[in-house]
Nucleic acid binder design. Structure first.
Lengths: 136, 136
DNA sequence: ATTGTATAATGGAATTATTCCAAGATGAGA
DNA sequence: TCTCATCTTGGAATAATTCCATTATACAAT
């Protein structure tokens, strides 16, 4: 927590109580929450927090490269505070998203045909599956 | 076109003029259109077509496995009538999406740790890049 | 060809996710 | 402590998508 506060000190990122709560919720969180998940969580402590605050904060963190938007779920955006490169797997039944830490970069060479038209900057793999809980 | 009509004959898929127009627009289309792109196109010929019709038809095609939803763009869904397995690359500047036909399946083994929790059913790679048009 | 019926099309309202905005509040540097 | 750039808030606005009641129609059976 102290670490969190120090991390943002003097960097043009105003540390408000709501933001601190959002940062604490996100720190080390691997559940890939949606904006609503975050909103509901912060509301427990700050009953008047607004979605605007949540979205503003998420936006600020994204701009700092400290938060990634996960687009694996077609219905809504999820957020991931782990900004080190990794991939995701989503359960087709319950929608649970988990991290896949494995480096496939060596294998993901683009075909010549594509390289003629695009300069590659990165990639992300969506894995699909069924989780143990849903296999009942 | 005759092919298209025969393809759907007697399969519980009612071929209305609007649907035929949507099918014709999608057939062989590699532009990854959004629902609105499709709506605007069909509207040229059928001025009263509604978004409901477009979404209903896309839904029916998805259920038949003849259309895929592409979730690479965080802002909206794109649709891809090519249901053979392939990946995508999106231009970070203009948003253009193109196909990547390359089989990486042999390389995409999931770590044991993940396999203990999920039965894998598939995967899709999002490549990010900048297209030639945008490199100016 | 005619008809019956299940299915589709339509317009508009409803829903959901997200962004915008104006007004008041506040963190943090001077 | 004071100042002000930045943040928070509630509500309105936007955008994507879905829902619904009504009318229309494709097509299978006659």
């Amino acid at each position: 927590m102290e670490d969190l506060i120090n991390k943002y000190k003097g960097r043009g990122f105003k540390l408000t109580p709501q933001r601190i709560e959002i940062l604490r919720f996100l720190e080390g969180n691997t559940s890939h929450p949606t904006a609503e998940d975050i909103y509901r969580e912060i509301k427990k402590k700050y009953g008047t927090v607004s979605f605007a605050t949540v979205y503003n904060t998420l936006q600020a963190l994204k701009e700092r490269g400290e938060l990634l938007e996960v687009t694996i779920d077609p219905e809504r955006k999820h957020f991931d505070p782990n900004s080190t490169p990794h991939h995701h797997i989503i359960c087709g039944s319950c929608g649970k998203i988990e991290d896949v830490f494995e480096d496939y970069s060596g294998a993901l060479k683009l075909p010549e045909k594509v390289l003629e038209k695009f300069t590659a900057t990165g990639n992300h793999i969506d894995f699909f599956g069924i989780c143990a809980d849903c296999k009942n």
